[in-house]
């Protein structure tokens, strides 16, 4: 969900906006957002989605918060990818009497897509490992049932590990459970990263300029 939004923002920043003070200010803002600790996003999510918008502690609130968390990463990755598209492609298309919008849609975006996707997937894998945002917005420490989509509380893997390892009186006994959860988490992150790598190398092979 953050992906289209981030890509649109990046297109605006690199292709349309006049490169002046305002754009630079936005870019600085976006970059510093990327550096903000995730706890802050979690608290923001709690304040905005859970309390203010009255979502309650639900998956939706967690998902939206994570979306905001990875937005700067996606914008950054997309901007880089768009800037990497040779200016000669844009010129070639525009010189044929193709509009700017169609040029972006047909030439610039497809060329930038591998970069956008890999950058974004790495952002997503970061989100998978984040605890704080979900802790505040969506997670409970333990539920026995599988969550119903969207409006239910869930267990977040990292948070689950954290609680298992630190609280309770039977830390030793829960070790296998902890290891199991960590394994799932690591496998998940690795899997997502792997997809990113595969996409990049697959699409990179098609494009040489």
């Amino acid at each position: 969900m953050a992906l289209p939004l981030g890509v649109v923002a990046a297109i605006y920043l690199t292709e349309y906006a006049k490169q002046g003070k305002i754009v630079r200010a936005i870019r600085v803002g976006v970059n510093s957002l990327a550096g903000v600790p995730s706890v802050v996003f979690g608290l923001f999510g709690l304040g905005f989605f859970v309390v203010f918008m009255n979502f309650g502690s639900y998956i939706l609130a967690g998902a939206l918060t994570l979306g905001i968390l990875i937005l700067p990463t996606i914008i950054g990755a997309s901007e880089e990818a768009l800037k990497g598209v040779p200016q000669t492609f844009r010129e070639a298309s525009l010189a044929l009497g193709v509009s700017k919008w169609l040029t972006i849609w047909k030439i610039v975006l497809p060329s930038a897509l591998p970069g956008i996707l890999t950058g974004s997937i790495l952002g997503i894998s970061r989100a998978a490992g984040e605890t704080a945002p979900i802790m505040f917005t969506a997670a409970t420490f333990f539920t026995a049932k599988l969550p119903q989509p969207i409006f239910d509380e869930v267990m977040a893997l990292p948070y689950h590990v954290y609680v298992l390892a630190t609280s309770g009186t039977h830390i030793e006994e829960t070790r296998p459970l902890q290891f199991g959860t960590v394994l799932v988490l690591v496998a998940l992150v690795l899997g997502v990263d792997l997809i990113a790598i595969v996409i990049r190398s697959y699409m990179g092979r098609k494009k040489r300029w």
Binding site: P86, T88, F89, E91, A92, S93, L94, A95, L96, G97, V98, S99, K100, K106, I107, S111, K206, K207, R208, W209
Partner: peptide
């Protein structure tokens, strides 16, 4: 955009799109 349709341009460095030959020609 309309002007560029009627006044075409060829650049110093060949700049085909990373597409097939057919799709390059029929792109416009």
């Amino acid at each position: 955009v309309e002007i560029r349709r009627r006044i075409g341009m060829v650049f110093q460095k060949p700049n085909p799109f990373p597409k097939s030959i057919f799709n390059n020609i029929t792109y416009g």
